[in-house]
């Protein structure tokens, strides 16, 4: 019996390594392709020229103004999107829990609705709305964040909802109210600190989504990081691919580091957390 078990385990080990090995190979090939392409020198030699350029910020902004412009726009968009998302969602969801539980289904529906509206469809519908936005607020790329908030709504909602579920909002709010706190204090000093992890994960998801957004920016002819990369890809593909690879490696390192931050609890918490991060339409 124990011999059987050991054999079964060995078989499982082989199966695991073979499966993971094959899949990782498939994942690695295009990434290696990017690396190989960016290190191509003249006449079939290897050179680190592209990467040296990329690390030299002065040179990048001088030679590739579009890239710098797109990068700054994307960072600005990410910050603005996260801010609007938090200001919009946290008080609303808290308030619904405290006073208007009847509306919770409506809010949930509205927040999850963007999952069924692909970004490309949103663009079609937003065209007249953005005509007004441009008329009222001007042409700045930053106003794309107004549409991005809608894109991140489902993911942010799920994170924040799980966070709110884990704490007893009502008791916390009543306790602080009875100690004389105003609603502002309750939000800022009681609810928000308790939602730290949820706010962090909602923000992280939003940033990742905004940095990777192409559809809306491209079709509204605004320049964010992805659009800049796309346009640069036509003239100087090497630098453009290098930026893409760098962004990917950066994202992986952040996620990998975060998987350790969870600590010993992560074994049990991993499942629900992963479930929430499930979807993004590239």
């Amino acid at each position: 019996m124990s011999g059987n078990r050991a054999a079964a385990r060995r078989k499982q080990d082989v199966f695991r390594w073979v499966t993971i090995g094959v899949c990782l190979l498939f994942f690695a090939l295009p990434l290696y392709g990017m690396l190989e392409f960016t290190t191509r020198g003249p006449g079939g030699t290897r050179s680190a020229q592209t990467w040296a350029t990329l690390l030299d910020f002065g040179k990048v902004s001088a030679e590739y103004p579009a890239l710098k412009e797109g990068f700054l726009a994307s960072v600005g968009l990410a910050v603005l999107t996260v801010l609007i998302m938090l200001v919009l969602l946290v008080p609303t969801m808290t308030w619904v829990r405290l006073r208007l539980p009847g509306l919770s289904r409506t809010v949930e529906f509205l927040c999850l609705l963007p999952l069924t509206v692909p970004a490309i469809v949103l663009v079609v519908g937003l065209t007249p709305v953005y005509a007004w936005v441009t008329y009222l607020l001007g042409e700045s790329t930053l106003w794309l964040s107004l549409a991005y908030v809608i894109l991140v709504l489902p993911y942010a909602y799920r994170s924040l909802d799980a966070g709110l579920r884990a704490i007893d909002v009502k008791t916390l709010a009543e306790a602080s109210r009875s100690l004389g706190a105003g609603w502002g204090t309750v939000m800022m000093r009681v609810i928000l600190p308790n939602l730290r992890t949820a706010v962090l994960s909602a923000s992280f998801l939003s940033v990742a989504l905004v940095l990777g957004e192409f559809t809306i920016a491209n079709l509204f002819s605004r320049k964010n990081l992805q659009v800049a990369m796309y346009e640069l890809g036509k003239s100087d593909a090497q630098i453009s691919i290098a930026v893409g690879l760098a962004a990917l490696v950066f994202g992986f390192l952040v996620l990998f580091a975060m998987s350790f931050v969870g600590g010993p609890r992560s074994a049990t918490a991993a499942a629900p957390r992963l479930r929430r991060t499930r979807k993004e339409s590239p």
Partner: peptide
């Protein structure tokens, strides 16, 4: 999440 431009490249 790695859709889009970088993936195509």
């Amino acid at each position: 999440q790695f859709g889009g431009v970088a993936l195509a490249f």
